[in-house]
Nucleic acid binder design. Structure first.
Lengths: 183, 183
DNA sequence: TGGGTCATGTAACCTGTTACATGATTAG
DNA sequence: CTAATCATGTAACAGGTTACATGACCCA
């Protein structure tokens, strides 16, 4: 359950409301996992029932009240167990709708497919730009956590490097494929 | 709906039963999309209700009866529309549980993380071996379709090349990351 | 006065996963 | 005799998506 564990991991850095979690999630984990705001609120309820979290309502005037979540000891255990799971294997599988389209692209003429690959390439280049923005928000969160050493940010940076390597690979693939089709 | 359209695409090559579709799916599309057998049967029912397919029951002695599906004109239209959709964008997003674990790996000691990356690397190398088997089954299906030209198999091969490039990128990433952590 | 931020969700639906069920034939 | 192949699913549950609702405050 990667979404639940992602939320656990973020709460392990400190207490947060659902609203803040949603923003933190989208600023840090979004390039390799996506979640809707509504889904995050739903999962938080479930996780509280599991005993992984506790919540406390903060009453506010001139702003809506909010619910501050904290990770419990049981939640911390769950997080470390999940990280240590030896299940790596299904987790590496690709699920890619673009490749599904490409697979069946033989139904169309070559020109349309070249233009599809060009669109793909430019989307990847856009995404690459956005990823560097993720790096900036990592710096922001590191400052917020008052991290002096690299123990956490090192791994954050690794995931972002993976994202970059992936997108560069996609761009290279698109270029190669376009060349092949142009022959 | 990539699964429905993947099934449409396969049926567009010729009539098949659910059982045969399941095998064809797993032999050709599985490296970028996964589906359970039960899900395939369920989707076929839905697609028939949509009018994308028709089915005919083949009675057999000494073997269970079977249901042979054929794509309709409306199904063919749907397939080509879906391929031509200009939505490329969400389709390129990564969803990777391994990266989620890596992101939060700062909670553990470096040795455990190095060993996780080594496991990751060896799983990727295994997957690379399996992919070359996919190439063989593509040859098998090409022969079955009696394809003389490359119009379809060219695109099949491209998706397989993408898979190879992806896995090689993962292996390189793992090696680099292990080096960084060993410092 | 209109749009953005703050802050919470519910409801319905679609898609994916897991577990289970049946039962004959055929190849080693 | 046993395991695989053939061939079909159902049921329950988990996870993801889409659409909608509420309402005050603040800034331009």
């Amino acid at each position: 359950m990667p979404l639940k564990h992602g939320l656990l991991g973020l709460l392990n850095y400190g207490q947060m409301t659902g609203y803040e979690l949603d923003k933190a999630f989208k600023a840090s984990l979004n390039h390799f996992w996506q979640a809707q705001t509504s889904q995050i609120y739903r999962e938080l309820n479930v996780m509280e029932k599991f005993g992984w979290l506790t919540s406390e309502i903060i009453f506010q005037t001139s702003k809506p009240n909010k619910k501050l979540y904290s990770i419990t000891d049981s939640g911390k255990l769950e997080l470390t167990h999940w990280i240590a799971e030896k299940n790596l294997g299904e987790e590496i599988q690709l699920r890619n709708e673009f490749l599904m389209k490409l697979f069946f692209a033989g139904e169309r003429n070559v020109q349309e497919n070249i233009s599809m690959l060009k669109t793909f390439k430019s989307k990847c280049m856009e995404a690459l730009t956005k990823l560097s923005q993720t790096d900036h928000s990592l710096d922001y969160y590191r400052a917020k956590l008052g991290e002096t050493d690299n123990s956490k940010t090192l791994y954050w940076r690794l995931t972002s490097q993976f994202g970059q390597a992936y997108l560069n690979m996609c761009i290279g693939f698109a270029e190669e494929s376009i060349k092949t089709l142009e022959e």
